[in-house]
Amino acid sequence: MHPHISTFYLASVRVRAAELLPWIVALAAFFLFPDFLSLGARILIYILLVLSLDLVIGYAGIVTLGHAAFFGIGAYTAGILSAHFGIKDPLLQLAAAGTVACLVGFGTGLYVLRTSGLTLIMLTLAISALCLEVANKATSWTGGADGLSGVTIAPILGYFRFDLWGKTAYLYSLAVLFVVWWLVRTLLNSPFGASLAGIRDNRTRMEGIGALVNRRLVQVYSISAGIAGLAGALLTQTNQFVGLNALGFELSGEILVMLVLGGVGRLYGAFIGTAAYLIAQDQLAKKFPEDWYLGVGILLVGVTMFARGGLLGALDSLTARLRRALKL
């Protein structure tokens, strides 16, 4: 499925120049487009979420349609801590949201990951439907369909206030994304990351060398759920509000589209796919609300038919072609 990584034990893990690009762009955008920061923060948060999805789908080969559940669980954890328990410290909320989502990922993963294929997809869908229904019915905790308001957030580290222009939110989200990116990148280069590639490539052989495949899948699923939970908390904190759409199927589907658009199993596919999708949505969905989803559909068909590796895959084959042309 992802033939572009062929060695782990002989690979250099030094950061390549191109890997700095997203961070340079993100910092430049902060100074160049002050009006864009609230959309910008949203993009960063969704990148985090899509990155966690890539870990599960692209690297562990677990196809899920219920990933938004973990995002929503993180979002509600942060919101409920603030609105009901008066815990307003953002980093504390972040840690709690990540932990709760991780634990739910672990608990459901134990059960769900025993299956595969269509059954697994249906189970992830069912679990996320269950979460949605719980959030919908437990109105005294979640505000139900009206959403949870009354969420206030203390300044970060007691000092950086969330401002109206979204400056703090943007830099805060960027910092969290950076740390998680580094952790995920480290994980993917580790023996653990190599064993995930082994599982994807040949599960039978992986069992034949003594790997406890299921345990490893549960591990990566929990880690991914935790990251999705962090992203959910960030959304609550930057919006000071949580709604049911943080848990919905629509979101699970949308982040899958972003990932496929950017390129599955490529780490940076999450960055480029999410940014492209959300910026296009911001520009086009308001102007052409009817055509937007049609456009997304056509785009998706185009990507799956002509650019299997998404935007990054297309870029890869373009540079490969250029290189060959220059050699000739």
Binding site: T186, P191, A197
Partner: peptide, 30 residues
């Protein structure tokens, strides 16, 4: 076999599994 992986990685996966390092998250395989 792990058809999409390098020859060395095919063997290293088995060795890492036997040595019990394949659950390591924070140090590069290399």
């Amino acid at each position: 076999l792990f058809r999409h992986l390098a020859v060395l990685d095919n063997v290293a996966l088995a060795i890492a599994e036997r040595m019990g390092v394949s659950g390591q998250l924070f140090r590069a395989a290399s």
